[in-house]
């Protein structure tokens, strides 16, 4: 499959701050690339460099084979961008909003209406054509935002934390739409998110820290890196178990959840650590009801990467 987004050695500074440093990534047609990382890692700056809203210090961006530097108009024509603070015209109806964005994108008078209906049907807003945007729920606004970004049939979609503040059912719907888009129309999506349960739905995930891409791979492959090294403990009282676990020098990190602990163990040491912990709780007034090696999740990988670099 062809690379629809091709970024080479992107670098951007703001004053003394190096916001993005020598970052390269590719997204192929039919792929969703998830950009994750802590606040301030450079995710939004990367998005803005890719869509040409910010000028590069150095490096090269190609969208659908067109260089953003040499042919910015052609490159932008192939892009849909939904920023974190996307704006809709609240006093306009759904249909009027779409007509506005269609006009901005140079879609002709004869064609915009059919395209608008098609895209609104796709996002499930076709029954509310004449409702004002200001009267929509958060989830419906999100879908309208997506529709406006898609109105000119871009081959590349850039989404900057698109599901901030929306609830699980809406997030689920939104992701179903995205996955359907890439499966049916083979477009490329680059999406940034602070949520690991969203990152895991991407074809490819890149971890950013301090302006750099520190790891990228399929979610399954990333999880594989910590295979065998995450131990789950249940028992009582969790607080004492936590103290006991943290005292073991082969335990690299202890994370408390509501009813269990997750420990990250040095490579190859999980079995001995389990034996040691079982022994250590005796006589401490604590009790382990279960202790086992579990599959690492993306959050485990995220934390491990941040701590190790």
């Amino acid at each position: 499959m062809e690379n629809l987004i091709q970024a080479k050695n992107l670098t951007k500074t703001f004053g003394d701050t190096l916001a993005v440093k020598d970052l390269s990534l590719q997204v192929r047609a039919g792929e969703i690339y998830g950009l994750v990382g802590p606040d301030g890692a450079g995710k939004t700056t990367t998005m803005r460099l890719l869509c040409g809203a910010l000028r590069l210090d150095s490096g090269e961006v190609q969208v659908g084979g067109c260089s953003m530097r040499e042919n910015p108009d052609q490159a932008r024509e192939q892009l849909g961008y939904l920023s974190q603070q996307f704006s809709l015209y609240e006093e306009l109806t759904i249909l009027e909003n779409l007509r506005f964005f269609a006009e901005v994108r140079g879609i002709s008078r004869e064609r915009w209406y059919d395209r608008a209906l098609e895209i609104l049907r796709f996002v499930g807003l076709d029954e509310f054509l004449h409702r004002r945007a200001g009267h929509l729920s958060g989830g419906m606004k999100q879908k309208l935002g997506l529709a406006t970004a898609l109105v000119h049939r871009p081959r590349v979609l850039l989404l900057d934390e698109p599901t901030g503040g929306v609830d699980p059912i809406t997030r689920q719907d939104f992701w179903q739409l995205l996955i359907q888009l890439v499966s049916e129309e083979a477009i490329s999506v680059l999406v940034s998110t602070p949520y690991m349960d969203e990152a895991v739905r991407c074809t490819y995930v890149g971890f950013m820290k301090d302006g750099q891409l520190i790891a990228e791979d399929h979610p399954q492959a990333l999880r594989q890196k910590l295979e065998g090294r995450i131990i789950e403990i249940r028992g009582k009282p969790l607080r004492s178990l936590r103290v006991i676990a943290a005292a073991n020098e082969r335990v690299q990190s202890v994370q408390a959840f509501g009813d269990r602990l997750h420990l990250r163990i040095q490579a190859g040491k999980s079995r001995p650590v389990i034996r040691e912990l079982k022994k250590a709780v005796r006589g401490q007034g604590a009790e382990i009801t279960s202790i086992e090696i579990v599959r690492p999740n993306l959050e485990d990988v995220f934390i491990a990467l941040l701590e190790s670099t």
Partner: peptide, 21 residues
């Protein structure tokens, strides 16, 4: 902790657990 990354969330929850303790 809506809108923050996993590390910030973990740190915040550690605070909550301390208060609850």
């Amino acid at each position: 902790t809506s809108g923050v990354d996993p590390t910030a969330r973990r740190d915040f929850w550690d605070l909550i657990y301390e208060i609850v303790a």
